[in-house]
Amino acid sequence: MNLLRFALRRLLFAVLVLASVLTITFVLSHLIPGNVLQAWLGRSAAQFPNLAAAYAQKYHLTDSIPVQYFYYLVNMLQGNLGISPSRGFIPVGQVISETLPFTLQIVFFSFIFSLAMGLLLGILAARYYRSPADNAIRLFYLGGYSSPPYFIAVILLIVFSFYLGILPSGGAYDVSLTTPSIITGLPILDSLLEGNLAYFQSAMVHVLLPSFSLALASFGIITRVARSSLLEVMQTDYIRAARAKGLSEGAVFFRHALPNASVSLITISSLIVTFLITGTIFVESVFAYPGMGQFVVTALAGLDYPGVLATTLVFAVVIVATNFVADVLYAYVDPQIRLG
């Protein structure tokens, strides 16, 4: 089957890209000033020589470069990402497994908001092409995607938290509540599965502002693409032919125009996810949301090289995976690729 072959080819490509990224992070970790151990342990390296020696052995830091590279790959694949000086020398892998779920929650909800808002406004703008509504929508999304996510976050914080007082100003959940046990690893989903509704409600309320900030900063791209591809599709011969059949405008739109215009949104969606996951670096710090984005900021400030390199890798994995899904989805939707 062609789709399968296509998917396998893209998968191979994704693996190659990730291998290159791994190599790059390895090279970068050797370009950092001083030796690796110093970067990891800072002054503690001199204070606790035994500890340093133990780490050096565990991560093969004193071997030759090719050997180090081999163990680097092995360690990465096993989730041993080094230790984080900015988080009290706990393993980076642990920091990431604690923070990534929160970040993924923001990415998920902001993606939903962004897509819903972007698509809706795109449809409206195309429907009322060149009317005041079209112009108003354009102004709205122009403001959105021209603003840094943290600026939007600050505005929302002032309006909804301080001025209106309807949404919490920070954190991921009410800390007085019992946290759900780990089922999928995503707290919001786990609390729902467990029936811990108090936590679920609190977590949802806390995720709204950060996700909405990112959605406001990103929906413009979707609106723009949805609008232009709808306008383009509505001009095609097959829409005219569908009208000639006597289909109602609603049927023409929902059965032919919208599905065909949506195809171009698949590629855009993977761009949006990239934008959203990097955007968490900013909005999490504004809302003190305990995700990976905030870890990146503290790691950068604390010259936490293993932390920064490991998060880079995680970003790359998420993005490569998203691109892979988008590619396959695109191929699935377009019969020319699926069957050709």
């Binding site: 097959y238 032919a241 006597g246 032919h256 599905p259 939707v333 019969p335 020319q336």
Partner: peptide, 24 residues
């Protein structure tokens, strides 16, 4: 007018490839 299209008056076009929805 829509009630006449298709049921009373039908039309076919010059370019059959672009007049068919490529995704259906």
């Amino acid at each position: 007018m829509r009630n006449y299209r298709g049921s009373e008056i039908a039309m076919i076009f010059q370019e059959p490839l672009t007049s068919l929805n490529p995704l259906r």
